[in-house]
Every structure is written in structure tokens, then in C-alpha cells.
Nucleic acid binder design. Structure first.
Lengths: 225, 225
DNA sequence: AGCCTTGTTGTGCAAGTGTATAAATAGCCT
DNA sequence: AGGCTATTTATACACTTGCACAACAAGGCT
């Protein structure tokens, strides 16, 4: 008897009111709702209805913007990876900084919020777990990852060059791999147990470990210029 | 008309033959089948029927050994974590080895098969992605993780003690965190892109990075004893 | 103002899900 | 050998899921 409380007794079963949104806006909203749902309920709980509810629309609409659920998930993951690497690289575009300072800034940026974040980690792990089975996800991950590692390798080369050192390609690659591992590993620790670290502690550990890996001495306080 | 092809026309609809297995054996098989299914199809594809098929039984039997699917998944993850940490620690029980050798052996063991393995990684990521929502999984992970890090910290303490160095608790903790990160990060890289590394390369990178982190010089070839 | 496009809703459906439960049989005990 | 019991199968069921489609209305256009 849900009608009993209806203040307008004779009204025909009213349809839900809605607003038309621009296409790009709706797609963005749906992708965001998808990421939210996956982060909160996992891939299992991220049903079309859950996603639609979160986006403030009904489930049927999703098929108007995406061919199917699979494609929505793939686009959502691609968007996530893109956002992560974009944020990570932002710290690299500092002008007027020594290579070593830029490397430290890069590491610090990657080991603090918003990159260190439980929700982002949950998404990362969830999608990556499926990457084995889904080549599209694997591809999206690989692109983002290689881009990231190339950035690392480029900065490392600059740092070592500024120190008058000339590593061969193999050494450079090994440094990049190790540094990448340090950042990734600390990122995971921070995401999974943020309360175990005081603010800035992870970044400090990371910078020190990386400088040790590169064999850098105490920092040069008086930079040129 | 499925009966048309039946070679024994008058036989009553034959029931599936089966063997009775010991309780422990069946539980193990079911858990293994669960891990296989999750690794291959993800949490979504790991349905009771898929799992049962893989274990060579029918779906109904699962409920005879586990209260529900949730509990089966939790026990499977617990088993996985237990196996991983157990394997990892195995390398530490070397007698007649210097602390530094034991640390190197530990790192090497963790950066080669069977710990570096795409299937294990897929499982790790899949379950961890759900840890946010499922406290039981989070607990299982945390236990395994803390055990691992304590091992690392203990070995690091031994190594530094053998070098006549006396780090305070904070330094020790930082070293353990960094070394843990190096191992984790390289482990991930190896699992996700094994073909990018030559055999033993990851372990070599890891050992070098960790020795740099600890400020260890070139190895002492002539160990005491 | 009125129409027309199309974004949006609501309903329906077949397939698949976890769970419940009755029927059957394998293998031990006497 | 024959019965007993607990393991195992098979079937049923309520529910959810992704997807299809027809009805509808929001908002720009003329």
C-alpha cells in the first residue's frame, strides 16, 4: 500500500523527472560512478544498477553511452591510469630546479596524497587482478607503466649527468628499475597502512633510498645560478 | 530429444559416479580449485559451479564443507597468504651463513619463481582489491604482511650488527620499510612483465639496491667461521 | 507556439547466481 | 553379505544480472 501516503491521489503513476546533460559530462559522470562503485564494492558489486544509482540516472541509460559493461569498465580503468600518471608527472615540470631536486620532488609527489590513497589503490589492485585475463586492461596498464618508467629513467639520466657520471645503458636501466620499485613498494605500503607512517615519512624514506641507490652524497646546498 | 543418442535405451537416467575422499583432502582440493578459478576468471568468474567443475565435483558439495561462498574465498586467501610467506621465510633458515649472505638469499628467493609468478600476483591483487570492503581479507593480508616485515627487520638488524653498526630503532625501521618496498616493487615488476628481465636479473638488482640502502661496501669474500 | 530529435526512463526477459533440500550411493562396520 | 551413515549428486527456487526495447519528455529549432 505505498499509494496510501501519496498526497496526490489521482495522479497517474508519475515518471521520474530528469535533466539532459551534455554527452561528455554524462560519460564522465558514469565513469566516475563506475570507479566509485568498483572501489567500494569490488568488481562484483559494481553492477549496472549500482553504477547508475550513484550517477543519479537509471541503468538503461548506460547502454546509451557504452556498448556494454565491459567497455565501461575498460574506459574507467583507462581514465584512472591516465589520471594517475598525469598527476605523477606533474611534479617533473619544475623549472629552475636542479635534476636532483626534480627527482626528489617527483618521489615526494608520488608518496603523498592524492596519489597515496586507499581508494586509488583498491582500484589499481582490482583492475590489475583482472589484467591477466583481459588483454585490454593489461594494455592500459602497460602503457601507463612504461610511460612512468621512462620518465624515471630520463630524470635519473639527468641527475647522473649533472654529477659528471656517465652510466651505460644497462646501469641506467637497472637504476630506473630499482627506483621504480622503491616508489611502487612505498606507495603500496602507504596506501595499505597510511596510519603507520607520519606525514612525509614515506617520502623521506623514498628519497633517501633512491639517493643511496644512485650513490649520491649529501645534497649540494648551493646550487648554481 | 537427448535420449535418441543414448546407447543404453532402457537404462534409468544414470547418476554420476563418484568417489568419497577424506575430508581434509576435499577441502584442500576445493581451496585449490577456488584459487585457480579466481586467478583465471577473477572474482566474478569464480562461481560455485566453476569451482566445483575444476575440483571434479558438483556445486552442491561445496556447501557440505563451507558455510557459504564467502567463507570459501576467505579460507582460500588465508591459505594463499600462508603459502607465500612460508615460502619466503624458507630462505632464511640457512645455517652456517653470514647475516649478509642470508639477507641476499632471502631477497633472491623472493625475486625468483615460484614467488615471482603471474598467477600468484593475479590472486594477490584480486583479493587485495577487495580488502577495503572485507575486513576478514584485510586482516589476513595484514597478518602476512607484518610477519614478513618483521622478518626483514630482524635480518637487517643482524646484518648491521655484524658490521659493528648500532642503528637506533627509527633507523632500523626505516631500513626495513625501504627494503620491504624494494622487494615488493621488484616482485610486482617481475610478475607483471617477466619477459622483460633476464633470469636472475631482478634478484641482482634487488640485492644491489638493498646493499646500497644499508650502506654496505663490497662483499667480504672470506667469511669468518 | 508547436514539433522533432534524442537523451532518458521503465519494464521485461533469459541466463546465471548462491542457497536449500531431497534423493542416491560409496564404503566402513558388524 | 547386508545394513548404516555421511558424502555426494541432482533438482528446485528466489533473486540478481546484463541487455533489449518501447514509451516518454526535455529542450533546441523553426
Amino acid at each position: 500500500m505505498p499509494d496510501a501516503a501519496d498526497p496526490a491521489p489521482m495522479t497517474a503513476p508519475s515518471r521520474r523527472k530528469f535533466r539532459r546533460e551534455g554527452e561528455e559530462r554524462r560519460r564522465q559522470d558514469l565513469i566516475e560512478a563506475t570507479l566509485d562503485s568498483v572501489a567500494e564494492y569490488g568488481l562484483q558489486g559494481a553492477t549496472l544498477r549500482t553504477i547508475a544509482l550513484r550517477a543519479g540516472v537509471t541503468a538503461g541509460l548506460i547502454r546509451h553511452y557504452f556498448p556494454g559493461k565491459e567497455e565501461l569498465l575498460q574506459e574507467a580503468y583507462t581514465a584512472l591510469v591516465g589520471r594517475m600518471t598525469e598527476q605523477a608527472k606533474t611534479a617533473l615540470v619544475m623549472e629552475d630546479a636542479s635534476p636532483r631536486q626534480r627527482l626528489a620532488a617527483f618521489v615526494t609527489a608520488n608518496l603523498n596524497a592524492p596519489i597515496v590513497d586507499a581508494r586509488v589503490f583498491s582500484l589499481w589492485a582490482t583492475f590489475l587482478g583482472r589484467a591477466n585475463a583481459d588483454p585490454t586492461l593489461a594494455r592500459a596498464h602497460r602503457d601507463g607503466y612504461l610511460g612512468f618508467r621512462n620518465e624515471v629513467e630520463a630524470v635519473v639520466a639527468e641527475v647522473l649527468a649533472a654529477e659528471r657520471r656517465t652510466p651505460d645503458a644497462s646501469q641506467l636501466r637497472h637504476h630506473a628499475i630499482a627506483i621504480n620499485a622503491i616508489i611502487d613498494g612505498l606507495w603500496i605500503e602507504g596506501c595499505l597502512a597510511a596510519e603507520m607512517f607520519s606525514p612525509g615519512e614515506l617520502a623521506a624514506i623514498g628519497v633517501k633510498a633512491i639517493e643511496a641507490e644512485l650513490g649520491l652524497g649529501p645534497p649540494e646546498q648551493f646550487q648554481e645560478r
